[in-house]
Amino acid sequence: MYENEKEIINFETGLNRFVGSKDLYITCLIKFIEDKSFDLAKEAMFLKSYDKAFENLHALKGLSGNLSLDLLYDCCCNIVDELRSKKHNNLDKQFSDLSNKYYKTIEYIKFLYTNK
């Protein structure tokens, strides 16, 4: 179902960040599904409220980095850098790409760890 699973979640690195506690790591991955940073960023992008988008995407970047959600993290880095530099030329395309990767990540976490 997922061709590049290791690109979505780098489980080995994530588990190391959680000092080998698999249960805690999985609990945090499941909690990530409930986080509202993406939804708030999406709303802010729609309203062209780029400071608010930056704030929420920066939070999403931190979460995805700490959980070793590499596919999403890399995309967050790009758009956060763009927002930080006040360049808004490619934001729609970048946010569309980020959205696709976010939903792919959420779908994969649900597939692996929940009954939803």
Rank of each mutant, 00 (worst) to 15 (best):
A53E: 10
Y108M: 04
K104G: 07
N66H: 04
D74G: 06
G14Q: 02
Y25G: 09
N10K: 02
S68N: 08
L98N: 08
E3S: 06
K110P: 06
F11A: 13
E12T: 01
N56P: 14
I30C: 08
E107S: 15
Y73L: 08
C28N: 08
K110M: 05
T13G: 04
K110C: 07
I33V: 13
F32K: 10
Y103P: 04
D39K: 08
I109T: 09
D70W: 00
K42E: 15
H58I: 09
N100K: 04
D97V: 05
Y108H: 08
C76L: 03
G14T: 02
S37I: 05
E3P: 04
T27Q: 15
D23W: 00
G14W: 00
E55S: 12
Y113D: 10
T13P: 01
E43R: 03
Y103Q: 11
E12R: 00
K87H: 13
N10E: 12
K42V: 03
K110D: 06
I109L: 01
Y73A: 12
Y102T: 12
E5L: 09
I9S: 08
L71H: 03
C75A: 11
I33Q: 02
K61Y: 09
V19D: 15
C28R: 00
I106D: 01
I106R: 01
Y73V: 11
G65N: 06
E55A: 05
L83P: 15
I26G: 13
N90E: 11
G65I: 06
F95L: 04
K116F: 14
C77H: 01
F18R: 02
C75R: 08
D23N: 13
N100P: 06
K61G: 12
S21E: 15
N4M: 07
L69K: 03
E34T: 07
K22G: 05
L29E: 11
E55H: 12
S85H: 03
E34C: 04
V80G: 07
L69E: 11
M1Y: 05
L24E: 11
Y113G: 10
F95Y: 02
M1N: 09
E3T: 07
L72F: 05
D97S: 11
L15M: 07
A53V: 10
L112T: 05
Y102P: 13
D81L: 03
A59H: 07
A44M: 05
I109W: 00
F32D: 14
K6L: 09
T27A: 14
L15F: 03
I106T: 06
D92A: 11
D23L: 04
Y113L: 05
N4F: 09
K61P: 14
K48V: 04
Y25W: 02
S64W: 00
L83D: 15
Y73H: 15
G62T: 11
